[in-house]
Design a protein around this nucleic acid. Sequence first.
DNA 1: CTGTTAGCGCGTTCAT
DNA 2: ATGAACGCGCTAACAG
Lengths: 346, 346
Amino acid sequence: MAGAKLADVALEAGVHVGTVSRALNPATRSRVNAETAARIIEVAQRLGYEVNITGRALRTQRTQTVGALIPDLTNPLFPRIVRGVEDSLEKAGYTALITNTDNDAQRERRMIAALTSRQVDGFLIASARLDDQALKEITEEGVPVVVINRTSADARASAVIADDSQGIADVMAHLVALGHERIAHLAGPGDTSTGQARLKAFEAALDRYGLQHRSELVVRAEAYTIAAGTRCLRELLKRGNPFTAVVAGNDLLALGALDALKENRIPCPERVSVVGFNDIDFAERLSPALTTVRVPKYELGARGAELLLDMIYSGREISTVTLPVTLMIRDSTAPPPLPGTGLFGL
Amino acid sequence: MAGAKLADVALEAGVHVGTVSRALNPATRSRVNAETAARIIEVAQRLGYEVNITGRALRTQRTQTVGALIPDLTNPLFPRIVRGVEDSLEKAGYTALITNTDNDAQRERRMIAALTSRQVDGFLIASARLDDQALKEITEEGVPVVVINRTSADARASAVIADDSQGIADVMAHLVALGHERIAHLAGPGDTSTGQARLKAFEAALDRYGLQHRSELVVRAEAYTIAAGTRCLRELLKRGNPFTAVVAGNDLLALGALDALKENRIPCPERVSVVGFNDIDFAERLSPALTTVRVPKYELGARGAELLLDMIYSGREISTVTLPVTLMIRDSTAPPPLPGTGLFGL
DNA sequence: CTGTTAGCGCGTTCAT
DNA sequence: ATGAACGCGCTAACAG
């Protein structure tokens, strides 16, 4: 028989509910006679006792559940992060309520309300929008928050991020070593911390290598999607300014860029090199296999969850953890075409 | 101020908590004076009242939360299903606790325990294992269960499935029309309903077209993974029995098969055609673009959640819904090589 | 060491 | 139409 409760165990063991509660909780077990504790545990097992976390939560104000706000689970970046989150949480007996936000402010608000209503002990937020009024409100109420793969203007939230600037620096070093000079950037949305950080790193690299800043070679994507990548590269082509390499804000934008190149019969990497960011699953199985920056997705989630648990349990102070990245050189990057041999736009 | 509770609203509105409860619940609102109800609602809004679902659950035995058991979120099939689940649930004010099971019995048990402990109102199970003792136990306790993308031996669970046999029939018709006669099958795990159904459909098609059953051309995968697909195709090659086409149990197995072909320098589709199942995201961006059977992933999840809500609310009877599939012909299938022009194994 | 009591927030019954 | 009281399952404070 499953679904037994404290009262059932108490009755069967011939003791009071309070004693059962103490005996079953490792933290308070020492306060009860060893023999009776053993008997209670035996009875609990026999009766199939399972704690009712709802009841416990009402009393302890702890649901042992956290809310996870994910922009879009169908972006292969996030399932890996979620796996990390899940594994870290499980060790502590926690569970995650996972919701998709589509980076949509309205939807995000609804989800936060649904999660708050369920008394989650904290939030893991991988949604990227920076101007996050909703986030501000929950931190102000003192609910622990950790943001993942983004920074937060709010000093009350911890953060786990990948080293965006190092990643872009590695990309640029790679492209410059190949001989590229006219490098375009498909920047991520301006209201995301990754979009901002990567653009900044891109510009810093231009300076580092003495390359000219050309505003016509930077296009802002309105979202981190394949479709946005396609639109941006079309825009780039329309502007007519020659380039031999494209640094995309993330892998999905890079995929969209590849589509646009293909539809214009511009071979990659022969005439234009393309680089992504994140190294999503399948990036290496595309044609051409995508050169990209690998971010430690699982660790991002795992560390984020650990940080959150620390905040919940020990109210530990706010911190920001930056994880290292790795440039994965594959087939979408190559030396630029020789001048006069068909450089696009020249 | 957010986080107000019934008592706060009652105090401010100068009425009793019970009245506030009735006024705020649309179902019981009619039982309270229209004017006071309006006042209460106004006060609730002003104070930022949010129902505490934990408290409500303790009383109503409804957490408005369901558990979702997913084998592996990093398989792109599942995020799409989850999106459907989420959208259907949200309309009813429900939320999903999503967990990865890895199709591992131990892990599945732990997850079910964690979810049961949180008093979920029902389960959505996309895990594929058939001999599901744990599932049996929860249905026996009367907890509503819907299985997704699999059938269940247990008559107490509803199911939403894709039309596996139609899908395989379409695949076989396609291959036969191209001229294939020696068709191999990388069957999914034997303890999954999809693995069984697709193998059965494969064999039925052999009969239909008068093709010989060759047991050497059927290999069982131990899991639905890329690695398993690679292992299986290597095994197939080792057996030395010639074949010109491979019908894989799902897309991941097909990807693994493509890897094994590549490592043996067997060009696809020139010498061997490969077909997958599911049409995961990115299937069309692979090289070669994968011919596969598209299953309506979002609908699978959405219908599954609807069925579950029906069971929770109206205790509606068990049913099985089969959704239609579509063959997506892409670049991984072509006519078999002409005899004598390098057919593998001949 | 253990029993008793109280209360977390809510919905519902029973009075009035 | 509304107030009062109870209890869902659990833990924590207090007695003894």
